[in-house]
Structure formats: C-alpha cells, structure tokens
C-alpha cells in the first residue's frame, strides 16, 4: 500500500484479538424489548456479518456499538459493551469521540451537500487531526484511496459529492468514515441501494478494510454475508441465535432457526 499507512499502524497481522465484547446486552424501545440477552465477542481485523429477518434487532444491536441509539429518546441500553476492554457506556466516554473511533456507513449514501474534499475533510477537521492544510490534504487523499475512489475523483475534488453516482457516493461515505482513522467500521446494509458492479467494488473494499479494521456489516443479502464475512451472527426476534464461522453457518448451522432462515424457509 502506501507509506503513510504503514507508518500509522504497526499492528500484528494474523492474530485475531477480540475487539468488541458485549455482555448480556438488553435494548428497550419504551416497553418493547428489542434485544434480549445478547453476548458476543467480535474479532479484530475480521468482517463480522449480522443477518436475520427484518425487525430481528440486528441494526439495533449494531447501533449500540457506537451509541447511535443514544439519539433515540425512548431507547434504553443495558448490559456491558466494551471496545478493547473499555466500557463504551461509561459516563466518562464522549459519544462524539467514540463515533470517531467507531465509524459508520449507512444504507443510503448520505454525502454532505458539500464538495468531495469537504465531505472527507469534515471529520478530521472537527477532531483536530490535521495541523495544517497540507496535512489535511494528505488525510483526504489517503481516505479516498482507502475508499477505492481516489482515481475517479482526484481531478474534481471541489465538485459536489452529491453529483457522484450511487456507488461512488457510497465509497465516498466509506472514505469519509475511515478519514478519522476509526478502529471499528459499522456498516448498515451498505450495498442495498447499489447495483451489482458498485456492490462488487464495495465488497472488494470491505475485504481490504479488514486488514486494518474490525468491520461489522448488517446485510439482508445472505450471499453478501457469505461473500464478505468471516464470522456470521444470526439474530431472530431480538435473540442472537447462532454465532460462528461464516463457512459453518452456511454449510452446517447448528440451530434449526438459522437453517430455516438461510435456506429461505419460513422461520
């Protein structure tokens, strides 16, 4: 890859540490018990897929991992979620700082109505990651390269981000998410609005991102989960039914509910 990236990270390769630990997590929306007793360990430098039918709680659980649920008034989260052993729901944790460390990409590409450059530069600017303009330029270039979109936009960085195609917008949003040097990247159905080619490009990108990040992806496409992830968690009615190697889940799942779901039977 490129030099700056190599300097940035000297993390060990091939060793799967636990990045996120969730213990007995409960989520309530008012009186609705949306997540029930979920405990899971998510590995570093691994793509973990959350699958399950609509309303099973997979997105809700994903949003617990960077406290996005804090923004919903009636939502209450119990239990313990730790990243690198640190409780992210601790009172001293600033959710804004947390979200810089735990980036998120959404279903629909949502670039800011600003230039391509500003879309990416926004996060590093507010978190004070660059001392001057030339450092910021480097950060933007690095992020756009990592988002696999640099070659397509390098000559029009001042053009509006919203003028890009859907697939390009989504890769721009991924570039924006990685610009703050997060350690975890959460993706909530990142390809559902994209065509197969753009989906392929994003999947290729996810595969590259796992060298540096712990990637957690929620997807309705079981084939996508099978293609991109190494670990798969199946959620059903707010419960984590089964969590195992993706290969195992798709060839020989242990729970009949998982089997019913992935083989396209009524669960």
């Amino acid at each position: 890859m490129y030099d700056a990236d190599q300097n940035r990270t000297e993390r060990k390769v091939g060793q799967k540490d636990i990045k996120i630990t969730a213990r007995d997590v409960q989520v309530y929306y008012g009186t609705n018990h949306a997540i029930k007793d979920v405990s899971v360990e998510i590995e570093d430098k691994t793509v973990t897929a959350f699958i399950g039918p609509s309303g099973c709680g997979k997105s809700t659980f994903l949003r617990c991992l960077n406290r996005m649920n804090d923004t919903i008034d009636i939502c209450r989260v119990e239990g313990n979620i730790a990243i690198d052993g640190e409780d992210i729901y601790d009172r001293r944790v600033d959710p804004v700082q947390l979200r810089a460390k735990v980036g998120m990409v959404f279903q629909k590409p949502n670039p800011f109505p600003k230039s391509i450059y500003d879309n990416v530069a926004y996060g590093p600017k507010i978190h004070g990651l660059a001392k001057n303009k030339s450092e910021l330029d480097d950060i933007v270039e690095r992020a756009l390269r990592r988002g696999a979109i640099w070659d397509e936009v390098k000559d029009r960085l001042q053009a509006p981000g919203t003028g890009l195609s859907g697939g390009q917008q989504q890769r721009l949003c991924i570039a924006r998410a990685v610009a703050t040097e997060p350690e975890v990247l959460l993706m909530d159905e990142p390809c559902s609005a994209l065509d197969p080619i753009a989906t392929g490009q994003v999947e290729e990108l996810i595969d590259e991102l796992k060298q540096n990040y712990s990637v957690v992806i929620v997807t309705h496409s079981m084939q996508q989960a099978a293609r991109v992830s190494q670990k798969t968690a199946f959620f059903h009615l707010g419960n984590l039914v089964e969590y195992d190697d993706t290969e195992k889940i798709f060839t020989n799942p242990q729970d009949s509910r998982t089997e019913s779901y992935i083989t396209g039977r009524i669960g």
């Binding site: 798709f250 060839t251 992935i262 083989t263």
Partner: peptide, 9 residues
C-alpha cells in the same frame, strides 16, 4: 437458487 446448508448438501 444458490443453495445453502441442508439444501446444498
């Protein structure tokens, strides 16, 4: 059909 699990088997 992209069969999986028991269907694949």
């Amino acid at each position: 059909r992209a069969p999986t699990a028991s269907d694949l088997r």
